[in-house]
């Protein structure tokens, strides 16, 4: 049952990324990616990580992609494709990516058979993650809030319209 669910979700996920690559309209690309990230959240759920699954759906599929869509709305879509010939470049990049894939799977092949021990009860729950975050990772956690604050201020300063350019 879990295997069927895994294959269904991973097909949706890979299909979402393929749709993002193949669609011409950037807005459709972003929407395809929402599908992909949401199914990735479900895959995290399959991996005994319910907290990460929820965070993925709320922050990635929700907040970040909505941010992308907002910016897409401020930029006119459907511009004519640039006239430069890029077919050779496309072929070259796909070849390079195939090489990268071969490398990744070659390095994976040693660990493909490994199974790992079954995880304990309650692994990856909100309580466990919270204890980890607020005991062992308290300083990194607090620094994250500084990073978010800096990003917030930076984004506002950058995107603000200046009166004297």
């Amino acid at each position: 049952m879990a295997a069927i669910l895994f294959f269904f979700l991973s097909a949706l996920c890979v299909g979402g990324v393929l749709g993002m690559i193949l669609s011409r309209n950037p807005a459709y690309s972003a929407l395809w990616l929402v599908l992909s990230f949401a199914t990735l959240g479900a895959l995290f759920g399959l991996l005994d990580a319910p907290f990460i699954a929820v965070v993925q759906v709320i922050i990635y599929a929700g907040a970040i992609m909505v941010l992308f869509l907002f910016v897409l709305m401020m930029i006119p879509l459907g511009q004519a494709p640039s006239p430069r010939k890029r077919r050779a470049f496309t072929v070259l990049s796909v070849l390079l990516a195939l090489g990268l894939a071969a490398e990744i799977f070659l390095s994976l092949s040693a660990s493909l058979a490994a199974h790992g021990a079954p995880v304990p009860e309650g692994f990856g729950g909100v309580g466990e993650i919270g204890r980890k975050l607020f005991r062992d990772f308290l300083y990194p956690f607090e620094i994250t809030s500084l990073i978010i604050m800096a990003a917030l201020v930076g984004a506002i300063i950058l995107a603000k319209k200046r009166k004297h350019p």
Partner: peptide, 25 residues
């Protein structure tokens, strides 16, 4: 999950927050 340690999930949490900041900037 394979190694049964929670640090991987904590790392993902940090990656997602930094990705949000990176997306905004």
């Amino acid at each position: 999950r394979r190694n049964g340690v929670l640090e991987g999930q904590v790392a993902v949490f940090f990656i997602i927050t930094v990705a949000a900041a990176e997306a905004a900037v």
